[in-house]
Design a binder for these strands. Sequence first.
DNA 1: TGTACATCAGTGAACGCGCGTTCACTGATGTAC
DNA 2: TGTACATCAGTGAACGCGCGTTCACTGATGTAC
Lengths: 193, 193
Amino acid sequence: MRFEKGHKAATRRHILDVASKCFRREGISAAGISGIMGEAGLTNGAFYPHFGSKEELVREAVANALAEHQHRLEENLHAGLDLENVIRTYLSQAHREERACGCPSAALLPEIARQPELTRKAYADGLRTFVSTLAALLPDADLPAAGRRATAIFALMVGTLQFARATPDATHAKQILEDGVKAALLLARAPST
Amino acid sequence: MRFEKGHKAATRRHILDVASKCFRREGISAAGISGIMGEAGLTNGAFYPHFGSKEELVREAVANALAEHQHRLEENLHAGLDLENVIRTYLSQAHREERACGCPSAALLPEIARQPELTRKAYADGLRTFVSTLAALLPDADLPAAGRRATAIFALMVGTLQFARATPDATHAKQILEDGVKAALLLARAPST
DNA sequence: TGTACATCAGTGAACGCGCGTTCACTGATGTAC
DNA sequence: TGTACATCAGTGAACGCGCGTTCACTGATGTAC
């Protein structure tokens, strides 16, 4: 079967989308090529014409997940959400439950830290972009200071979401999320130093 | 070879110590029984007289790592360290580099969130204890409020350390750690609400 | 216009390997007589 | 006091399985003549 022009590139993007969800849901080392390809509606043999190795897929899937998450943030901002809305959406029960389509940092950070340098570089770039976008919502006078505060605010958000996901008791998890929102807002509104 | 009384229990503790380090270093699903047993100076066959399954080992090793980390915190407090010292030690270059003996939350949280309920319960208990210990260092009037703020402060610390570990550029990582310290201290000193 | 061929995304079986787990066995020591 | 036996932590080979990866093959379509 021969395919229309652009078909291969579309398949590749589809594999990346599926992989980035599988990794976030199951973890990078727990998710396998066969499972990902099966979920993409293909057989495992079709993987290697698209990617050189699992490592390459991981690197691109991490970048893909970050870009997707970044895109969703920008959409929300265009729709008029302010920083408080962004924080409340991030630290919500829905985000706690939806790991596959959620923040890649919350789902994968310790595993990303164990990846080869190229993957970590790709992650660090995506993180920097995300933090800059958050920083633009802060009232700080100079941008570098805002970036530094935004980094800490996002770290608080990521850690809080991870706590809430690990906690099996839903009530306790909800409390953790609320505490995170309160502290994040406090940091966002604190007088700039 | 027959062994003195208490030998088996000592071996079990030794396996747990090694496993809790392996998990933090390599990740839970990436670390294998054979590797752990080899590092403990035993053969893989000796595992099952001590533990019923890998899942059981994970649960106990997570609890073990939390207890060890808790113990180190309490030692530091007895030695006279205050909250600022604790934060600076946690968000230090040394802790960024020493994953195997460091904070289990920073090394394992997303993987713990994917474990069976029993493991997540064990984690949540350890987390609560740790946060309570931190809360006692806060100036808050009532304890529940202090606990809620301590949760957020610890979440910020965990997220920040994870960012710093994932970032390949050492200078940028150092900056992230410093921003985390500053924000954590701001949260710790903010007037209680 | 009709036919033979080239293309190439995807198939599916197979590779070696390491996983978690099982089990018959070892062998130094404590105990029984 | 000396000998035969029971104990049991640990050994190491093997189990079935799924991993990441390779490769000969398929077969629908575009192209050449």
